[in-house]
Nucleic acid binder design. Structure first.
Lengths: 152, 152
DNA sequence: CGAGGTTCGTTAAAACTTCAACCAACGACG
DNA sequence: CGTCGTTGGTTGAAGTTTTAACGAACCTCG
């Protein structure tokens, strides 16, 4: 037996497309804004995660998981960030397979410069545009999504 | 004068990150689900837009705008879709610079196959997870974003 | 101990996207 | 009409991400 497809109704359709288009535009805008610092939003998120971690470092696999990226992608990206001297790799003593990605002083200070601009962009192009209730709903929605899809 | 940065408060911070992570996971999931049809979500959206257009065709520039993609990216992607015989290009008579991208019969029928699975995925991993009110809020949020950032 | 499965991270190649340059056609205007 | 600025679309190269395969280290268990 084939179950009848439950199509989206037209309101849902509209909301879904607004999300797709809005996200594309938003990410492009945030990327543009970060370009002045030589970063993309992906690089930025990596630096942020490192900056918040104890000793400003994280294991590659842990970082990849938090960003929902493949390890391979992270290896490449961190390679570039390392070439730019924003991140340093050191080997992990307790697990010899492991590698720490650690924020350098230069990385931290670039982040300090970029963060205010970036946050301002997030506000101007998203947070400040909508009611606190709607923004909170956004959080609930994607918590549910993450929860449902599960870790990796 | 330098204005003090208005950082996100911790609720906003959490919601913002939930959105980033949730979106990454959701898109990866939808991409995975479409892979059985040899499509990515980007290809899928192209086919959908064409299928809805009069005569199942759109001008390249128009299509690029609707998807918020660069013309170059679209040229490459349509090139691949054309090689897969899902789309056909024809030149535009009224504007000789123009090119129509037109869904082929094979493209339409692949879309017919893929659509139910895809919609089911969108429901299962997003729409059906949250209250209708929260989902509607999502729509409002990204309408506001799109509106604010403007077309292209 | 040590065999066999798993995890960590990297690598090379393939696939895809971005960037910059380009040409043809359009359109406004003197 | 003819020039000049703009739009539509493509191209090739450079840059980024994905895919698949791999080796080293870890872990479990007989």
């Amino acid at each position: 037996m084939t179950t009848e497809t439950r199509w989206l109704d037209s309101e849902q359709q509209v909301a879904w497309r607004a999300y797709l288009l809005g996200t594309a535009r938003l990410m492009a805008k945030l990327d543009d804004d970060l370009r002045q610092f030589g970063l993309g939003i992906n690089d930025y998120e990596i630096l942020v995660r490192l900056s918040e971690a104890p000793e400003r470092r994280l294991r590659m696999a842990e970082l990849a998981d938090r960003l929902h990226q493949s390890r391979s992608r992270l290896t490449h990206t961190v390679g570039r960030l390392e070439a730019a001297e924003l991140v340093r790799r050191t080997s992990c003593k307790s697990d010899k397979r492991g590698v720490w990605a650690e924020l350098t002083e230069a990385g931290f200070s670039l982040l300090e410069q970029a963060a205010p601009y970036h946050v301002e962009g997030v506000r101007e192009n998203l947070v400040d545009l909508v009611s606190p209730e709607d923004f909170a709903a956004l959080g609930r929605v994607f918590d549910a999504v993450s929860e449902h899809i599960g870790q990796r």
